[in-house]
Write a protein that binds this DNA or RNA. Structure first.
Lengths: 109, 109
DNA sequence: TAATTCAATCGCAAATTTACGATTAATAAT
DNA sequence: ATTATTAATCGTAAATTTGCGATTGAATTA
């Protein structure tokens, strides 16, 4: 963005939720996460086989999911085993639930 | 993106979920939606007062939320009243739930 | 009719995202 | 020691996103 002289401070939860949402904001990354849910874990190569994208592109998507904290990689040389980061996955789940269930939780009484 | 000669076809739900997630992928837009949940509905001007952003920028964020189907605008000349699009909101909620509750719904038995 | 109000849109600039091929680094196998 | 395998990273290009001020269009009010 341009001319952003001062940064905006949103609530921490808002920032975090947006971060998670942004990471989920690409069909390839949704597909990766769905695959990880099915397989529990998998190697980068498995995903390259499944997705119609170059290895470097898949690697980049994995990096973004990792940076957002949604997945984690474990070294199994020379491969890397990726799994969903359960702790942050639960965190994300709760943040989305809070957003979508606002009416039920806060407006009923 | 570059050199995308053929488009990738993901499942419809995957595409839709990614679309919703992308729209949620900015703290300003999360803030707008939270505000709409609190107020039920509001005018663009209300949001401009609340957010430390230019009117045109807020308008752009509203446009993205509208394009994703998460909100809808109702003409109340010369103002425009924005509300959450309940139908699509529910759709989004379900798609996120399906993603996050995969283990529970599909792996328990 | 003219002035005012509200919000979308335009035009621009900078940053970020998406994608690819090529290269690199690390490890395993020969 | 050399070769092969795996996946990250680099460099590049194009598209998209984010932000702003200025302008426009629509409708209300004076």
């Amino acid at each position: 963005m341009k001319r952003t002289l001062e940064n905006i401070n949103y609530k921490e939860d808002t920032e975090l939720l947006a971060r998670f949402a942004k990471a989920l904001g690409h069909p390839t990354r949704i597909a990766i996460l769905k695959h990880l849910e099915n397989q529990s874990c998998c190697f980068t190569g498995d995903l390259v086989d499944v997705l119609p994208l170059a290895q470097s592109t898949v690697s980049q998507h994995l990096k973004e999911l990792k940076n957002a904290g949604l997945i984690q990689g474990e070294l199994k040389p020379p491969k890397i085993k990726y799994c969903i980061n359960q702790k942050n996955w639960e965190r994300a789940k709760l943040l989305f639930e809070t957003l979508f269930n606002y009416d039920l939780t806060n407006k009923k009484y």
